[in-house]
Simulated scan of single mutants.
Amino acid sequence: MELRHKHEMLRVEAEARARAKAERENADIIREQIRLKAAEHRQTVLESIRTAGTLFGEGFRAFVTDWDKVTATVAGLTLLAVGVYSAKNATAVTGRFIEARLGKPSLVRATSRITVLEALRHPIQVSRRLLSRPQDALEGVVLSPSLEARVRDIAIATRNTKKNGGLYRHILLYGPPGTGKTLFAKKLALHSGMDYAIMTGGDVAPMGREGVTAMHKLFDWASTSRRGLLLFMDEADAFLRKRASAGTFSLQEEINNDLRATLNAFLYHMGQHSNKFMLVLASNLPEQFDCAINSRIDVMVHFDLPQQEERERLVRMYFDNYVLKPATEGKRLHLVVWDPQSWLAHLGTPSPGA
């Protein structure tokens, strides 16, 4: 077995040496075959290129010399380009038309404007809204006598503008929060027979580069209103801040490029008075507005905190609506007796000295 194993190993070794020797001797022949195949392939490709170039040249020469073919080709390419361009623009216009009438812009939080989808979903409610009569601009709004007279003049002027198809004025309502600015804006729209849309300035800054597109969509949507639209922007100072502070380069006082571009788009639409929409801005800090905003505002109204007389009227109105009226209609009032011990137990055991 040992001799047989040695003999087998010698045979394998001899075969390997013979195979390696044959490969070394045939390497030159293999390289020559590869070179010949490459040269033949190269020649074939060159011949194909020459043939194609000859055919193309003859075809192009025949095409150029035949003016009827040239004219037909140019006309066909022109019609194709016009068709592609028209289809692209038509698609964009159709998309904007559908978006403006079937939905509302992303910046609008609430609106009284009736869309096609809303009419299909709630036909009875929509019919009631369409048949409802205009409300008094100060119904349910408690203001001081001087302020009430001022805003009533604005309501009368706005309603006359709506009837005569004139250009609406832009209004700024400023003062402490909770003084009735938003409520008056809604009442003003309903009194004038207009729709209202409510947005907030704090929603514009986080949009970044999309802010310009969203702002154009907002005003395009407002321009399609048939009844006229009162666009109310709450917390307007969060968006309409100064684009740059004079004499300073503080990063805290200078807005970024995206917000500046959005503000420029807003100023463009605000600078053009329209018979389709009016702007009503509300702010607690109007001194932070950009100077271009102040130059485009037509009316400024200051809403101050209610005094003692107005607060008594507010309490009386609350009592009439939520206590007296339900009692006269036979509704039971549920009263909760306040127990300080149970309240302290709910909060937990008080600490010493609390």
Rank of each mutant, 00 (worst) to 15 (best):
A189Q: 01
V108T: 02
N257M: 08
I293N: 00
R19K: 15
I34V: 13
A16L: 15
M1E: 14
V141K: 02
D234F: 01
L344K: 12
V141P: 01
V280S: 00
A18W: 10
D68T: 15
T179M: 10
R42L: 12
D234G: 02
R129A: 15
S250V: 08
L259H: 03
S250P: 02
R128W: 11
L324D: 14
K181Y: 09
R96C: 04
L46E: 15
A27H: 13
M215N: 00
G271L: 01
S245W: 06
V299H: 05
P350Y: 06
A282W: 01
S127I: 12
A149K: 09
H346D: 10
G211D: 01
L80V: 07
G228V: 00
G348N: 10
S342W: 06
R109C: 09
V45S: 05
A62G: 05
T54L: 08
L251V: 11
S274K: 05
A149F: 04
R209D: 11
A261N: 14
H216C: 01
D220A: 02
E15S: 12
D258L: 05
M278I: 00
G140H: 04
N294F: 08
K186P: 01
V108W: 07
A14H: 13
T349L: 15
D290E: 04
E13R: 14
G211H: 00
N257L: 09
D339V: 10
L333Q: 09
L335H: 12
A246G: 09
A345P: 01
L80C: 09
G140Y: 04
R241W: 04
L79E: 15
Q272S: 14
L117R: 10
L77N: 08
A52N: 08
R19E: 15
P105F: 05
R260P: 00
A185W: 02
A137V: 00
N26M: 13
A14S: 13
A39S: 12
M9I: 13
G193W: 06
D258H: 11
K276I: 04
V141S: 04
M233N: 00
A282V: 03
Q43W: 05
D203K: 10
R313K: 15
V45Q: 09
L231H: 00
F232D: 00
L183W: 06
A354M: 14
K217D: 12
R19M: 15
G330T: 04
I124E: 14
A38T: 09
E148F: 02
L229G: 00
L167V: 11
L130N: 07
L167Q: 10
L138D: 01
K88A: 14
G178R: 11
D195T: 02
F184S: 04
M194C: 10
V45D: 07
C291P: 05
T94R: 06
E210I: 03
T73S: 10
F249R: 13
P176N: 08
T115F: 11
D258Y: 09
G76V: 05
G353L: 08
S127G: 12
G76A: 08
G228I: 01
H41Q: 14
N160T: 13
R226A: 11
L3F: 14
A265M: 09
V84D: 05
L172T: 06
H269D: 01
A261C: 08
P134I: 01
D320A: 08
A236Q: 03
N257E: 12
E13Y: 11
S342D: 09
L267D: 02
K331N: 13
A81V: 13
L335C: 13
A14T: 14
D304I: 04
A189M: 03
L344E: 13
